[in-house]
């Protein structure tokens, strides 16, 4: 699971001991996250993948990563549904788009990436497409 989630930029949140209260005024949602949820929430910074988060949670609570992976994914999906999390862009794709204006046309291997980025909101599809595109890199 290389999916990444990031906290919604409009979400306000604060630690209360080991718990977290999250507030998303735009989505009119308020959530209280327990210690495990708070750890997952804090890890959702747009850089850590679900696998990495699962490993971090498993390490802290003395569980196996395989056991917690499904729960972590379901939790992130639920917060995403409530408008508190959103899928983060793949960090590896960013340098390809951060080109100066006078850099000339994009190389052909970047175009499938753009298509995948624009046309596939579903994470599974993007995960499947990305490796094929990356293999074209020099």
């Amino acid at each position: 699971m290389s999916t990444r989630y990031a906290q919604h930029p409009d979400a306000a949140w604060e630690w209360f001991r080991d718990e977290v209260v999250v507030l998303a005024p735009a989505a009119r949602t308020v959530c209280r996250l327990n210690a495990v949820g708070a750890q997952i929430w804090a890890c959702c910074d747009g850089r850590m993948t679900l696998d990495e988060i699962s490993r971090a949670v498993a390490r802290r609570w003395n569980r196996s990563a395989e056991n917690v992976a499904a729960d972590v994914r379901a939790f992130c999906l639920e917060l995403s549904r409530r408008g508190l999390l959103r899928r983060a862009a793949e960090p590896a794709l960013r340098p390809a788009f951060a080109r100066p204006a006078n850099a000339g046309p994009l190389p052909p291997y970047v175009l499938p990436m753009i298509a995948a980025e624009k046309g596939m909101p579903d994470g599974g599809e993007r995960d499947r497409v990305k490796p094929r595109s990356v293999t074209g890199l020099p």
């Binding site: 979400a11 306000a12 604060e14 209260v21 005024p25 308020v30 209280r32 996250l33």
Partner: peptide
């Protein structure tokens, strides 16, 4: 956290996200 949740209202202000934080 439970107490804070109960005391969260009222959030007053123009920019609700910032005021909430």
């Amino acid at each position: 956290a439970q107490a804070a949740l109960g005391m969260l209202e009222p959030i007053l202000g123009l920019d609700a996200a910032r005021a909430g934080q």
